[in-house]
Design a protein around this nucleic acid. Structure first.
Lengths: 410, 410
DNA sequence: CCTTCAAATTTAACATGATAAATTTTTCAG
DNA sequence: CTGAAAAATTTATCATGTTAAATTTGAAGG
C-alpha cells in the first residue's frame, strides 16, 4: 500500500504548477465522484468524469493498491436487463483514513471520530473551566479529550490521519492563526503551532462555520452541489460559502461574517461592539436580551434552558415570546435575502444542531425572504433546513480533517 | 495561421472532461500571464506559470504561428547586467483579435472598438427614442450603431471577432436571456437570439455590472488579482464578483445585486418595487428624490445636469445638499462594509465614469466603512476608486467579447 | 452442462505533451 | 578575438491518457 504516495510527493515539490499534474486531476475527479455518489461502477465513473474507461481502470487499480477504495461485494443488480458482465461497484474504503474532529466553544469541547466514508465511530463532549483559556492549556486539554475519545474504540492518537478543529471567532486557516476567539484569553494566537506541539499527528484549524459548510459538502445536503451557502444560527449567526466545490475563505480568512452584516444602521448593540449586526437580533443572546426586558420573571436556570423555555412559551401562544421569535425570524429573513441577492445560489442550507428552527420552515418566513429578493421568473433558490443533532460542529471539523488529509494523499 | 484551431475544436467535442486538456491549460496559463504582465520573456513566463522552458517555447511558437502573440522588438534592456543572450519579450498581438463592446441603457447606447491589447480604436455613442424598446428594434439599431462605429476605422462588422453587449437588468449570460431590463418593453426576452439574427459575428450579452468587473480584470486595477469585488454606483448600484480569476455569476445569473440588498427594513421605496434597498438611498434617482423635497426650486433641465448642480451646491457648502450626499455616503459605506464582512476581499474597486466620487475618497467615508467591518489586526481590505471616463461600460462589454473570443480560440 | 450474448473491464499499441539535459545563440568583458 | 554567461531552443525520455481490440464474466437459452 502506498507505494505511489512517496513518488508523488517529490513530484509535487518539483513542478510548481499543480494545475498541470494530470494524474492528480484524474484521481481527484474519481475520488470526489465516489464521495458524491457513494458507490459507482467503473463504467459510470468513466461517464461521470469524462475519463476513458481504460484510465478509470488504471487509476482505480492504483487507488485500490493504496487502500483508498475497494470493490463492494455485489448486491445491487442495478441494471434492469441481466445480460453481460455485471458491473462491480467501487466505494471509498472507510478504514483507510480515520480522523477526529473537534469543535471548541466557550467552556465546551465536543469531538467525533469518523472514517473516510463518514461513519461516526465514536463521540465525546466535555466541559471545562474557566470558559476562556490560554492557548497552551487548551492544547493540553484537547490532547486529553482525544485520548479519552479514542480509548473506547481501541485507537490511539497515532492511528489518526489527522485532527480537524473548529474554532469560533476569526481564524486564518492557512496560517493557523486565531485573530480573535471568544474562548481564548489572548488575541492573535498562533494556535496551530501550539496544538501541533501537543499532538503527534497533523492538525488543522479553521473557523467553525466554514467547517459546517464542509460537512454539508462531504456528508450533507451539499454533496451533489458545487455551489451553495450554509447558514448557521445558534450561538451566533455564521455562514459558509462553497463555490466551485471549494469553501471560499476570503483574503484573510475572516469572510463569511453574515452575523456581523449590518441590517439596521446604528441598531442594537452586538457582542462584537458594533451596532446593527444581524447577530444582535437573532442570536441566542439577543433573544434572551429581549426576554429579560419583556418577561423578567422567567425562571433563571442555565442559559440554555431559559431559551428553551422561551421557545416553549412562544409555542404555547404567549404573545411576548412569540413576538420575540417573530422579529428574529423577520430579520434573519432579511439577512438571508441579502445573501441571495448577492450570491444567487441554487441552494441555501440552514444548518443547526437541534435548534428551534420551526419558524424557519414556516410559510411566513419563506415569504419574507421572497419579498426581499430580486424577483425573477424561473426557479427560486432552494432553502433547506438541516437538523444535524449534537455532533454537527464536530462532524464539520472531521470533514475538514478528511478533506485536508485527502488533499495531501491524492 | 490557425491551423491548430480546427483540430482542437474536434478534440473538445470528444473529450468531455475539458479539465484534462493539458495543452489548453498551458495555453491559457501563458495567455493570461501575458495579459496580466503586458510583456514578458519566455524565461519569465516559465517562472511565472511553472511550465518548463521547453513547454513555453513550444506553446509560444504555436501561438505565434496562430498570430495570437508576437515578439516585441527589443527596446527594454530589462535586466541590469548585460550578460548572456538577451531575453526577447513577447506580447499579445493586438491586431489578432478586434472586438466591439456596446453598453445599452435607457435611451443611450455607447460603443467602442478595442483590440486584444486593450487599445481603444474608436468609440461612438447614440441616443434613441423611445427609451424603452422592443427586442428586434433594439437589435436593428445595434447593427446600425456598429456600422457607424466601424466605418471611420475602415472596418466592417465581419472584421470583428465578436461583439459584447452589456445590458442593465437581470440577464442570464449562458442562455442569452433577459429576465428583465429597464430598457426593454418586454420581460423574459431571448435577446441573444434576436441580436444574433441581425449580426454576422458572434454576439455575447451579460449584465452590465459583471462586465465592469471583467474590464477591471482585463484592463484595470484587478489585472494582477485573482479575487476582488467591483462596485459601481451611478444609475443604480451594481456589483461584480471575481473569484479565482473568473466572474462569479450565480445560479441564474442574477446575483451580485448589491443595489437591492436591504439596509433598512421597510425603508425607502426602490424602483424595483421593494423597500429599503441600498439603491433607494444612493442611486442618482434617490439623491434627486431627496433634492426635490428639500430644494424644489432647483432649476430643472435634464436629469443629469440637475444632479451635477446638486453636487456643485454641496461642494459650495449648501447644507441641504451636503446632507443628501452625506447620508448616501454613510449608507453606501454600510453596504460596502457588509460586502467586506461577507467576502473579506483583498481589494474592492469602486468604479465609475466621471462620477461624483469625492466623498468616497474622504476619510469620513473610509472610517464609516471601517467602523462597520469585523475588526482584525492585519492588512485592511484595500478600497480603490477608479474613474474610467465615459467609456467604462462599453469597455467592459469589449473585455467581455475578448474573453469570450479567447475562450473559444485557446 | 454447454453455448451464446452483451456489458464491463482489461490490455496493448499509440499519441500527446511535459520535463531534464544538452545544445545553440547572443552579448559582454577582457 | 576568445571565453563566459544567460537566454532560447532542441532533443531524448518519460509519464499518462486514448483508442481499439481482447478478455472476462454471469445470465439466458438450448
Amino acid at each position: 500500500m502506498i507505494s505511489r504516495q512517496d513518488k508523488r510527493r517529490s513530484v509535487v515539490q518539483k513542478s510548481k504548477s499543480s494545475l498541470i499534474e494530470q494524474r492528480r486531476q484524474g484521481r481527484v475527479l474519481i475520488f470526489s465522484q465516489l464521495r458524491k455518489s457513494g458507490q459507482l461502477a467503473r463504467i459510470d465513473l468513466s461517464k461521470e468524469t469524462g475519463l476513458s474507461p481504460a484510465t478509470v481502470t488504471t487509476i482505480t487499480a492504483e487507488m485500490m493498491e493504496e487502500g483508498l477504495i475497494e470493490e463492494v461485494d455485489r448486491a445491487a443488480p442495478t441494471g434492469d436487463v441481466k445480460r453481460g458482465r455485471p458491473r462491480v461497484e467501487l466505494k471509498l474504503s472507510s478504514s483507510s483514513c480515520i480522523v477526529a474532529g473537534i469543535k471548541l466553544s466557550k467552556g465546551v469541547m465536543s469531538s467525533v471520530v469518523v472514517d473516510l466514508a463518514g461513519n461516526t465511530l465514536g463521540s465525546l463532549a466535555r466541559t471545562f473551566n474557566p470558559a476562556t483559556v490560554e492557548a497552551d492549556v487548551l492544547a493540553a486539554s484537547v490532547r486529553e479529550l482525544l485520548k479519552d475519545l479514542l480509548e473506547p474504540q481501541g485507537l490511539k492518537i497515532e492511528d489518526l490521519s489527522g485532527v480537524g478543529i473548529g474554532v469560533p471567532g476569526i481564524v486564518n486557516k492557512e496560517e493557523g492563526y486565531v485573530y480573535w476567539s471568544p474562548m481564548l484569553t489572548q488575541r492573535n494566537v498562533p494556535l496551530l503551532e501550539r496544538l501541533a506541539d501537543h499532538l503527534p499527528v497533523p492538525v488543522f484549524i479553521d473557523n467553525d462555520a466554514n467547517l459546517v459548510a464542509l460537512a454539508e459538502l462531504w456528508f450533507g445536503y451539499g454533496r451533489t452541489f458545487d455551489d451553495f451557502i450554509v447558514v448557521t444560527t445558534e450561538h451566533g449567526v455564521g455562514m459558509g460559502i462553497v463555490i466551485d466545490g471549494k469553501v471560499y475563505r476570503g483574503a484573510r480568512g475572516c469572510g463569511a461574517e453574515l452575523g456581523h452584516t449590518k441590517i439596521i444602521p446604528d441598531g442594537a448593540l452586538c457582542r462584537c461592539g458594533q451596532r446593527g449586526c444581524l447577530e444582535a437580533y437573532v442570536a441566542d443572546y439577543a433573544l434572551l436580551r429581549e426576554a429579560n426586558i419583556a418577561m423578567p420573571d422567567l425562571p433563571s436556570n442555565s442559559l440554555e434552558s431559559r431559551l428553551d423555555q422561551l421557545y416553549r412559551m412562544a409555542q404555547e401562544g404567549n404573545q411576548e415570546a412569540k413576538s420575540i421569535f417573530w422579529r428574529a425570524g423577520k430579520l434573519l429573513a432579511l439577512g438571508l435575502a441579502n445573501i441571495i441577492n448577492v450570491f444567487d445560489p441554487k441552494l441555501i442550507i440552514v444548518a443547526g444542531e437541534q435548534m428551534r428552527l420551526d419558524y424557519l420552515s414556516s410559510d411566513e418566513f419563506t415569504q419574507e425572504v421572497q419579498r426581499n429578493i430580486v424577483y425573477v421568473e424561473g426557479p427560486r433558490p432552494e432553502i433547506v433546513v438541516h437538523r444535524w443533532g449534537d455532533l454537527m460542529w464536530a462532524k464539520g471539523a472531521a470533514a475538514f480533517a478528511l478533506s485536508e488529509c485527502m488533499n495531501a494523499s491524492l
